[in-house]
């Protein structure tokens, strides 16, 4: 495993032009993913976690305006011409989605869709393409791969489809796998299988993983580090242990205390009052301040800068400055 940074996002801003005005969906996000690391991007609906993932592969719709830098192995993806970008997509960086049924082409058999990856990216192969594909299907623990090669996506269960999607992404031996809610549509017993598979493959293939999820349980199982997002800003980032055991941002704390642990007779769940803000006119300063029980004047005016809590653990909150 190599040391150093594989992907570095610097000051990313994404605006969406809409009929009602400009939605400021990502507001200055910076983060990095190291070689071999699993970084989780966690937050609730509309926090911008998927937008960050899509900007890495430049998959955003036309009405999006992106500023900032996304450095992948040192090159800024946002500056690349389309032809160079295609070499990265699916080869250097793979992506899997929540619903593999919509990501797989329904009219082709799974085997052909995977072999297509070898052709598109002109990958070097040792054996025949068929053998390579069967090997990949074996690697993602699909039983009876010779037969499954000829299956159409609709003939597979949700778990098997997700495995096939992963196999497709592995063809190019990517150094980064973006997993956007990879198990949210699956049952828990299948989820456990897929999560284990992804972790095994990370070791076998030496991949870094960017995990997009809303589920703290999945993060706790998988991630090395975690970034908590709220309304397009990062609230807190750090090693997963530090954040779960020693959360600092009021939003992180609220989120963890809102988890239904224990029993209703023993405790009431924590409410985070209010609702997610409108991103066309987002609150100035820290975007969490209207819902924050501890907000001070400064929170309404200034965007918080990162405060070091401990090694690698940063929190974006004014309350912690100097305290």
């Amino acid at each position: 495993m190599r040391n150093g940074t594989l992907l570095k996002i610097e000051d990313l801003y994404v605006n969406f032009k809409t009929d009602e005005g400009i939605a400021k969906v990502i507001d200055g996000v910076s983060l990095d993913i190291k070689y071999g690391e699993v970084l989780a991007l966690m937050g609730e609906t509309g926090c911008g976690k998927s937008t960050v993932a899509k900007s890495i592969l430049r998959l955003l719709p036309k009405n999006a305006e992106v500023r900032g830098k996304i450095l992948f192995k040192g090159t800024n993806i946002l500056d690349l011409p389309e032809s160079e970008l295609r070499k990265i997509r699916g080869k250097e960086i793979g992506m899997i989605f929540q619903d593999p049924l919509t990501a797989l082409n329904p009219v082709f058999i799974v085997g052909n869709q995977i072999s297509e990856m070898f052709k598109i990216h002109k990958l070097r192969i040792k054996r025949t393409i068929l053998d390579e594909v069967i090997e990949l299907l074996k690697n993602v623990r699909i039983p009876d791969p010779q037969r499954r090669y000829y299956s159409y996506p609709f003939e597979l269960s949700g778990g098997m489809r997700q495995r096939a999607m992963i196999a497709m992404m592995l063809a190019g031996r990517p150094s980064l796998l973006i997993a956007d809610e990879p198990t949210s549509a699956l049952d828990v017993t299948i989820q456990a299988q897929i999560l284990k598979l992804i972790m095994d493959l990370r070791n076998d293939y030496n991949m870094s993983i960017l995990l997009i999820t809303h589920d703290p349980g999945v993060v706790a199982e998988m991630a090395d580090r975690i970034a908590i997002m709220y309304a397009g800003q990062i609230a807190e980032i750090g090693p997963v242990r530090d954040i779960f055991l020693n959360p600092q941002h009021p939003y992180t704390k609220g989120l963890l205390r809102a988890l239904p642990l224990g029993h209703k007779e023993e405790r009431e769940l924590e409410n985070i009052p209010g609702r997610v803000p409108n991103l066309i006119e987002p609150p100035p300063g820290c975007r969490f301040h209207p819902r924050c029980p501890h907000a001070i004047e400064k929170c309404k005016k200034e965007k918080p800068k990162p405060v070091v809590v401990s090694n690698e653990h940063f929190v974006f909150c004014h309350l912690l400055r100097g305290g």
């Binding site: 009602e20 939605a23 969906v25 409108n278 066309i280």
Partner: peptide
């Protein structure tokens, strides 16, 4: 979807 939702409020 969330953007659409926000725009249509009211």
């Amino acid at each position: 979807m969330t953007e659409e939702k926000r725009r249509t409020v009211g």
